[in-house]
Amino acid sequence: MSEINVKKHRRKWEGTEIFSVIMLTLLALLILVPFWNALVISLETAAAYGKAPFSWLPGEWTLENYEYLFMSSNALAMGYKGTLIVTSIGTLCGMSISVMAAYAFSRKFPGKKVLFGIMVFTMFFGGGLIPIYLQVKNMGLLNTYAAIILLSLISVYNIIIMKNGFDSIPPDLEEAAKIDGANDFVIFIRVMLPLQKPLIATFSLFTAVAYWNSWYWPLITLSGSQKTVLQLYLRAMISSISASEKGGVLTAAGAASTSSFSQGIKMASVFMTMLPIMCVYPFLQKYFVKGILVGAVKM
């Protein structure tokens, strides 16, 4: 083993390898620096930012930008509340319906082709924004979390990929269970679900992230109420601060006497919004990758 390693180490680097390493390192920096820059600004004082708008470390550390978010109003808490409700209920319900349907479509039954076609057609053609909006309005769902949950409940693409996962389970298992007298639903719960745990976990993650990041339907359906979600909170925060700032100095009420400042507060709200994803992502990245590859292989 060690001999091979030594050999590998001493071998001449190819031109393409050197080129790749340099370009990829630059690209990694290009992606990291804007995040780092935003983080530094959110952690420094107005005076430090005024002196040097860009620095690699905060000129003077402070948490006041974050304090401002928590103290100025309960909007951040409201945003978290809305997002947590939508994400948890949406993921649970959406995944339950999708997994059941995916399993059902992996079985043989009369009318399968037609039903599958009816489902797939919605991937390619839809009513469009206004008819869907009017539908939600007619159902009396405007300004409810239910609207946001329902509108993004199902991803046909995910169902198809999960169906492919169920397809790959050998039929012997199902037949054995049938002989033991189990019905389709029992087989689904007892036999199939445990076998597909990794796939289901992966798509639950995708669904949860999609709910966490959703802002378009919330923007449209929650416009007339106190209810909000994190992404909307961030959007409102950024635009209200931008509207009230003059020359980069915050004039918003409540912040004047402290060392928090507009750009710092903006960046603090960015980090408060992405915090959970930022914390969880590095550890779950491989599941996300697995998810997209399951789909790719089948294409």
């Binding site: 349907a101 059902a104 009513g127």
Partner: peptide
């Protein structure tokens, strides 16, 4: 049971995909 498992999906498709198409 298979149809039963598909039922929630098709209710959703009917309400949020096909009904708006009529719109």
């Amino acid at each position: 049971y298979i149809y039963l498992m598909l039922l929630p999906l098709f209710v959703w498709l009917a309400v949020f995909c096909y009904a708006p198409m009529y719109g």
